[in-house]
Amino acid sequence: MASDTADIRNGAVLNIDGQLWTVIEFQHVKPGKGGAFVRTKLKNVTTGKTVDRTYNAGAKIEITNVDRRDYQYLYQDGADFVFMDTSDYDQITVSGDTVGDATNFMLENQMVNIAIHDGTPLYIELPPSVVLEITYTEPGLQGDRSSAGTKPATLETGYEIHVPLFIENYTKFKVDTLDVSYLGRVNV
């Protein structure tokens, strides 16, 4: 779909030289001298590479239509992952390469958002935070509530994260899926 830079939004998918790029950030800039321009940060949908790109205001760009739907993660099948569309119960299989690092934070029955273009899953978007349980961490120091110290902890997905020293085994807590940080304990 032919558009111009005024149509750039976060999450829009641009087709640049046959490759699909997601807009992570954009900023319309109107300097005192010279013409206005749009500064963007783009992420390649297939490789995950990010680049900064600047367009003159009004430049023609190609925005691609991407279907984003909520899916429920069902199970892993070898290197692939099976998801179900909760609106019509259709199942799709997504390759492990496409799922990528999201596997570190996915549990069965978890809801995710999958972007699909021409029937091909492009990427998986996790919720901003997920609740996971620690299966193993070294014993903490009782009474140490300082935020300065951290220790490694293994999550129920097998992924390792750093948590405050006072956290113990089998603690459920919120994890920020964007920057992989500890957000606090959850009482269940």
Rank of each mutant, 00 (worst) to 15 (best):
I116G: 10
G143E: 08
Y123N: 14
G96Y: 08
D118C: 06
S95P: 12
V99A: 03
L141Q: 15
G119Y: 03
L126K: 10
V99I: 14
D90M: 06
P127F: 09
L122G: 08
E133S: 11
Y136S: 06
T103P: 05
L122E: 14
L126Y: 12
T120H: 04
S95G: 15
Q110E: 01
H117D: 11
S147V: 14
P127N: 09
Q110A: 05
G100A: 15
P121N: 03
T120P: 09
V94P: 02
T135E: 15
P139M: 01
P139T: 12
I92L: 09
Q91T: 14
N113R: 11
P139K: 10
I134E: 06
T98S: 02
T93L: 01
L141E: 15
P121F: 02
D101E: 13
G140R: 03
D144S: 03
T98Y: 02
G100Y: 12
P121L: 05
M106S: 03
I134T: 13
T120L: 04
N104D: 03
V130R: 04
V112C: 04
H117W: 07
I114Y: 03
D97E: 08
Q142H: 05
L126D: 00
S95K: 13
T137Q: 06
E125I: 14
S129W: 09
M106I: 14
D90K: 15
L141P: 08
P139I: 12
V94N: 01
I114E: 08
G100D: 15
P121Y: 03
P128K: 15
D101W: 12
V131D: 15
Q142C: 01
G140H: 03
Y123G: 03
N104Y: 11
H117A: 13
L126E: 00
I124N: 07
T103A: 07
P139G: 10
N109G: 04
M111S: 11
E133H: 07
V130C: 04
